[in-house]
């Protein structure tokens, strides 16, 4: 059975691949403008190599399983919540901030185990009122342009 590598080896390899893609893109830039991006990409590739080397050294030094402070596998909750944020963004983008936000906030607070509905709704409503007064009435942010229902929430 082959010994498992320290994850930094794989991280370094992934970054090296990223550098290769960027390098290819940087080559397409014409003239003087390409100098800095190409130099930076090469330096980044060198750094990736060092990351791999360090990873190999850690692999050698380590006996048995690796222990990481934080791993992708353990972060399911975080990625799930990131998914919620993205859904919230889509609602914001295509419906309107003023509907997306209360939906998101009530749902997120429930998800994050705020037990009392009363507290949940109260905070959401207060946030919405303050936000609307500050951004729309005082600062006249043209946020009504975002989303199909945005214009219903325009203050004129």
């Amino acid at each position: 059975m082959t010994k498992k590598f320290h994850r930094d080896v794989w991280v370094g390899v992934a970054l090296l691949a990223f550098c290769a893609v960027v390098f290819f893109l940087a080559l397409q830039i014409s003239g003087q403008s390409a100098v800095v991006p190409i130099t930076l990409t090469v330096l980044m590739a060198v750094c990736s190599l060092f990351i791999i080397l360090k990873g190999l050294r850690l692999t050698k030094a380590q006996e048995g399983e690796f222990h990481y402070a934080l791993t992708v596998k353990d972060s399911k909750n975080a990625f799930l919540f990131m998914g919620f944020i993205i859904i919230y963004y889509l609602l914001f983008r295509y419906v309107t901030y003023w509907i997306a936000t209360p939906v998101f906030m009530i749902f997120a607070m429930k998800h994050l185990k705020v037990k009392s509905w009363k507290v949940n709704i109260l905070i959401t409503v207060l946030y919405m009122i303050i936000c609307y007064v500050a951004f729309v009435i005082i600062l006249q942010l043209p946020i009504y342009k975002v989303g199909v229902l945005g214009r219903w929430f325009r203050y004129v």
Binding site: F104, A108, M109, I123
Partner: peptide
């Protein structure tokens, strides 16, 4: 409570 407010 803090997390949803920060995101919004």
């Amino acid at each position: 409570v803090l997390v949803p407010i920060i995101v919004a």
